[in-house]
């Protein structure tokens, strides 16, 4: 067990951001915290990174209970914050060398450049990188110390689909190398594609956790029919953003019902983690 958390609580005055959550992360897996904005994902991860203090609860790192996330833990973990500022005037290689210098052991910055695919940008200033390149550099910094556990807090937020896929490939490389990844995301597709274990969190509580396919199976959801939100469709199912999600066991009769209302542009698909979340909380991941 690389990380174990028991009854973790966090209060900001009267607001209880985390309501006694417990989970554990197995070595060599990608563990994902999935939830909407404000669910408590970043609070959890920042407590584990040492950026915030817990109000109550226990944290076990590498089999030992820790009260404070000190340098000995920081040597063994890698961190990719939700929003990372770097020295914009340094070059890519200068930045990697700088961060490498903070750790006792780690990877050669040139190797990291290769993994994140920034060899051609080695001598470019950080300020001249595109959004995707910048994020790849930030990701590179998260494993410059060759960590056992890497925290990635919404690493693909705001990126275009191509950059997002590039980041996913890098994350999958970590897994191949036997690293453990703690990933927070509000992208259902990201969690489904990358995670071995998903923990769905909302309002400071863990609603459910398990392997993505198991969670979908356990939810009892059969088939989803998705129709655009309008006056005719509004009462057919749960409204999520500009769509109405209809969960059904009898696809034919549901389609017939939809068509009878004059709705022709509908989608029939298998349930996803987002549907599981919708079923459990009554709201969408991006609400």
């Amino acid at each position: 067990m690389i990380l174990k958390v028991r009854n973790l609580e966090k209060r900001y005055g009267k607001l209880q951001a985390l309501k006694g959550i417990s989970f554990q992360v197995e070595e060599g897996t990608i563990f994902s915290f999935l939830g909407p904005n404000g669910a408590g994902k970043t609070t959890t991860v920042e407590i584990l990174e040492g950026l915030r203090y817990k109000t109550l609860g226990e944290i076990y790192y590498f089999g030992r209970k820790v009260e404070k996330i000190g340098p000995e833990i920081k040597e063994r973990i890698g961190v990719c914050l939700q929003k990372t500022e770097l020295f914009k005037e340094l070059t890519v290689i200068e930045t990697l060398k700088l961060f490498r210098g903070f750790y006792r052991k780690g990877l050669d910055p040139k190797d990291v450049l290769e993994i994140v695919g920034l060899q051609e940008k080695e001598k470019s200033r950080v300020k001249n990188l595109s959004g995707g390149q910048y994020q790849r550099l930030v990701l590179g910094l998260s494993f410059i110390n060759d960590p056992e556990l890497i925290f990635l807090d919404e690493p693909t937020t705001g990126l275009d689909p191509q950059s997002r896929r590039h980041i996913w490939d890098i994350i999958l490389t970590f897994k191949k190398q036997g690293k453990t990844v703690f990933l927070t995301t509000h992208y259902m597709e990201e969690a489904e594609r990358l995670a071995d274990v998903v923990c769905i969190i909302d309002n400071g509580e863990i609603i459910v956790s398990g392997k993505p396919e198991e969670l979908i199976k356990q939810s009892g959801l059969k088939v989803i029919v998705e129709v655009p939100k309008n006056a005719k469709s509004i009462n057919l199912g749960e409204i999520v953003e500009d769509k109405v999600i209809i969960e059904t066991e009898n696809v034919n009769s549901t389609i017939q019902e939809v068509m009878n209302l004059g709705i022709e542009n509908f989608v029939v698909r298998h349930p996803t983690l987002e549907d599981v979340f919708l079923k459990l909380t009554g709201k969408g991941l991006r609400d």
Binding site: G50, P71, T84, E85, Y103
Partner: peptide
């Protein structure tokens, strides 16, 4: 504090 320093806080740096 919310940008650069936050990144330094997660390093083994006093």
């Amino acid at each position: 504090k919310s940008g650069l320093i936050k990144r330094f806080k997660v390093l083994p740096l006093s």
